[in-house]
Amino acid sequence: MRTRTLPAAWSLTAILALALPAVVHNPYYLQVIVGGYVTAIAVYGLNVILGYAGQLSLGHAAFFGIGAYTVALLETRAGLSFWPALAAGCALSVAIGYLVGAISLRTRGHYFAIFTAAVGVMIGVVFTNDQQLTNGNIGIVNIPPPAPIGPISFESPVAKYYLVLAALAFAIWIVARVRYSLLGRTLLALASNEDLAASVGIDVMRAKRLAFMLATFLAGLAGGMFAIFVGFLGPDSSGLDVSFDMLLYLIVGGAGTIAGPLVGTLGIVVLTQWLQGFEHYKLLVFGPLLIVLVRFFPAGIAGGFARLRWRRTATP
């Protein structure tokens, strides 16, 4: 199925992404795109747990928040520099992901979805209401960008763009490698039929937990990037509604596909910006568009194209 068009499409995407700051000079537009990249990193994490392993997490944005707040607090309060703060943010996100997974992945059905939603709400409450630690609704300001590495400084919007792009490329590399590996096959198998997977010797619980740790790692990484690219962090970055947004991006783009999270996130983020001018009427465009998508691309945009390609190659 991996035909020659696929690497070509990815190369083209990479070239476009690298050239973008030379074309888009408006810093606001650049900011929107970078924001899309950051969210896409988190959505790649959601893709691992939902798209691959088939487990619906409704608290994904909370792990994004854990990464973001850890970086913001360690930088502003503890005086740590960005890179160790980012490592700590990812580690904390994974550690909490491990605990949440250990408790809630054991049982089947909707339990994991409900549990992660509850955890998400609880963590969100901490972000919103804790005046001392997270500064409540006011949030944390003046989060410094990473210190320069040699001659490369990360002060300018363009430099931050490339930093976030590198993180996104790293995320895509990870999920693509996992997807086409024995581990990836294991996750897809258990998503397809958990009983059968267990009966052929797959430790289903362990595999799901690993998938969730990878998912929360990517959410934490995205959060850390978010903290420094805006320089400001508030609780509305990681509420339940953000988790649902991420879910929407993934499903529109195509759960389980490699391109899906990027296509879905950028597509909707850019479209939302573009529809900003329509004020409330934007929902009149957005709603029908979603219905059309779900009707004609039930597997998402990337999933739909994969199917078309599959059909073309399958019937010579």
Binding site: I174, R177, V178, S181, L182, L183, L210
Partner: peptide
């Protein structure tokens, strides 16, 4: 036996 790091 291949796991996460083998995949990466």
């Amino acid at each position: 036996r291949s796991g996460f790091f083998d995949a990466l």
